[in-house]
């Protein structure tokens, strides 16, 4: 039987890809960011932790979907997904290889579970999907696992509510658990944390909000899932709404989770960055050492 063993969150900002491509990932600015991911990379490379399939929850940044078609929840059921050309040529990374059997199984299960999914076969994947893969797996010739892209609309309002995202995660868990093949499945929630990329308020970062969000995501996600959109907008910036996608990951892990790793950094370009590894408590492995890492400006005392 397939099972969701692990939830991971990660930033997906394109500047991380640019830092890798230009050889800057270990400079003074990016070094602490990539340093914070080193222990995740080491952990995930171990045989017992390496997923067979990742359900990768991200938002398409106006790449596969334009204004013509705006699916709230979509799932990629194709064999292969090409890196999108977002204006500077496609990212030089391997094609993302899907898992159509599991993807179609999840799609069908979700629809039967009252989630009216949008199903895609041909879809280019943008930085939202490929940056987390680069951060976890580095620069391999081929990605070491299969990936089911699950784009969520968080661009055009209204995006789905936190509660709906949380419930979707729970339905993904049930769908995975009814797939007969023995597979180690991860659910990754990407994006965030606090950031705003537009208007005179651009550059907003809210450390207190972010750290509370992480704490509540781990310990009381149901309450967190009821937070209205306006609170994300006010507290975490106009693009901080991406954090609703983390609730999909959390919903897929069941009631109690163990925190294996918790990394928070300010700033990564315009954003605060959070990267977590969580596992369902009953099947959780050992936490990483150190378990909690703060770096960059997040170490400064709050003003």
């Amino acid at each position: 039987m397939a099972r969701v063993t692990t939830g991971i969150t990660s930033s997906h900002i394109p500047a991380l890809g640019a830092a890798i491509q230009t050889g800057k990932s270990r400079d003074d600015y990016w070094g602490p960011v990539f340093g914070g991911y080193d222990s995740i990379k080491e952990w995930i490379a171990k045989e017992e932790n390496m997923p067979d399939v990742v359900v990768l929850v991200y938002n398409d940044h106006a790449s596969a979907f334009d204004m013509n078609c705006i699916p709230t929840f979509a799932i990629g059921c194709g064999e292969v997904f090409k890196p999108a050309d977002e204006g500077w040529g496609p990212r030089p990374v391997p094609d993302v290889i899907g898992h159509p059997d599991l993807a179609w199984h999840i799609a069908q299960s979700l629809i039967l579970d009252d989630f009216d999914m949008c199903i895609f076969n041909q879809m280019d994947v943008d930085h939202g999907c490929t940056i987390p893969l680069s951060m976890m797996f580095g620069e391999p010739e081929e990605w070491p696992c299969k990936v089911i892209p699950l784009p969520v609309n968080v661009v055009c309002y209204p995006p789905p509510s936190g509660a709906r995202c949380f419930a979707l995660g729970d339905s993904i868990k049930a769908a995975v658990e009814s797939f007969p093949e023995d597979l180690n499945v991860h659910v990754w929630g990407t994006g965030g944390m606090s950031h705003q990329l537009q208007g005179p308020r651009a550059g907003l970062i809210n450390k207190e909000f972010d750290l509370n969000f992480i704490d509540q995501l781990i310990n009381d996600p149901e309450t967190l899932s009821k937070m209205p959109h306006i609170d994300y907008l006010r507290e975490a910036g106009s693009e901080g709404i991406e954090l609703v996608m983390w609730l999909i990951m959390r919903g897929a892990l069941g009631d109690k989770v163990k925190e294996l790793y918790n990394f928070y950094h300010i700033p990564a370009s315009n954003t605060a960055l959070g990267a977590l590894i969580l596992q369902p408590e009953e099947t959780a492995g050992e936490a990483l050492n150190p378990k909690r890492v703060l770096s960059g400006h997040s170490l400064e005392a709050a003003e």
Binding site: P14, A15, W88, C156, Q196, L197, P200, G203, E239, S269
Partner: peptide
């Protein structure tokens, strides 16, 4: 919307940080 407009500043070889910064004055 900034994610659509990112195709324009990417065509110019500019980053999200450049575009976001340009909107703040």
């Amino acid at each position: 919307n900034v994610y659509y407009l990112s195709k324009l500043f990417s065509t110019d070889g500019k980053s999200f940080q450049f575009a976001a910064g340009s909107m703040t004055g």
